[in-house]
Computed example of a mutant assay.
Amino acid sequence: MERLIQDVLSAMVTYETGSPKRIQHFIKVYTFSKLIGLREGLDPQTQLILETTAAVHDIGIRKSLEVYGSYTGKTQEELGPAEADALLTSIGFPREIIDRVCWIVGHHHTYTDIQGLDYQILVEADFLVNLYEKDEGVEAQRAAYEKIFRTETGRQLCRDHFPAVCQT
């Protein structure tokens, strides 16, 4: 498992050559995803899916920029799965892992009907990083805390990052 994760992280750094902001982003989302998953006690296969998804979750951005000249959450969901599939296949990931990772990549900007702890934790980690990177204000932090964060570890990390979410 650890070798597959090392390979996907290295492949993603290469894939995102020239975009340190995107590299820094996925590394942070990966780190928080791993931490939350481990603290929440995921089984090894779900943890592998989570960590892999965290590494590739925004893989659709580069393709969206090529195809559309810009990107949105929806264009990432549209174009990301095929990019993730190709990258993970080239590394030698099992098909059942690739399928789940690609499904989450294709839905990771959809926050309704979140199915599975792997998907939930990825969304929480991405929010945690985006709230910081985009310098979101207290109201956005509080709204995310109330509407997005469901795991105890994710909620604690959000409170630790943004203490004002707990103040009235």
Rank of each mutant, 00 (worst) to 15 (best):
T112L: 02
E83K: 02
G69L: 01
R100M: 02
T31G: 01
C166V: 14
A86S: 13
V165S: 07
M12A: 07
F32N: 07
I97Q: 00
K63R: 10
A164I: 03
R22F: 11
L35Y: 15
D43P: 05
D7E: 15
D43E: 13
F26L: 03
V129E: 15
I49G: 01
I5K: 05
Q141R: 05
E136V: 00
I114L: 06
I104D: 00
Q120V: 04
L117Q: 09
L9Y: 03
F32I: 10
V129A: 05
L38V: 13
E152P: 02
A55V: 14
E83D: 06
V67M: 09
V8N: 00
G18M: 12
A143F: 01
T72S: 15
E133D: 15
I27C: 10
G106Y: 11
Y68R: 11
E51C: 14
E66W: 00
T52F: 03
Y30N: 08
G18V: 10
L38E: 15
W103T: 00
T89A: 10
T110N: 10
R22S: 12
L35T: 14
L9A: 10
L50H: 03
G37Y: 05
D85H: 12
E77K: 02
W103E: 02
N130K: 04
L4M: 13
Q47Y: 08
V13K: 14
A54V: 07
E78S: 08
F26T: 08
H107L: 06
T31D: 08
L87N: 08
G80T: 04
P81V: 05
E40F: 03
F32S: 03
Q120A: 00
T53L: 12
D113A: 13
E96Y: 05
Q47K: 12
Q24A: 11
G18W: 14
R155E: 05
T168H: 11
T151F: 03
D99R: 14
I27V: 11
K147A: 12
H161L: 15
L157F: 15
A11E: 13
A54T: 07
Q141I: 01
Q167S: 11
D160M: 02
P163M: 01
K147L: 11
D160A: 04
I97E: 01
C166S: 14
E96S: 06
E152F: 03
V101A: 06
E139S: 13
Q141G: 09
R155L: 11
V8H: 00
S64C: 04
K63G: 08
A144M: 08
Q6E: 14
P94R: 12
D126P: 07
G80H: 02
H57I: 11
E146D: 10
E146T: 13
I59L: 08
H108P: 00
S19Y: 10
D85C: 07
H107Y: 04
V101M: 03
T110A: 02
R62M: 06
L79Q: 06
H108V: 03
I97V: 15
T14W: 09
C166G: 15
G106M: 14
F26A: 05
F26H: 05
G41Q: 09
A143G: 02
R3C: 01
E152W: 01
L157N: 15
V13C: 07
H108M: 08
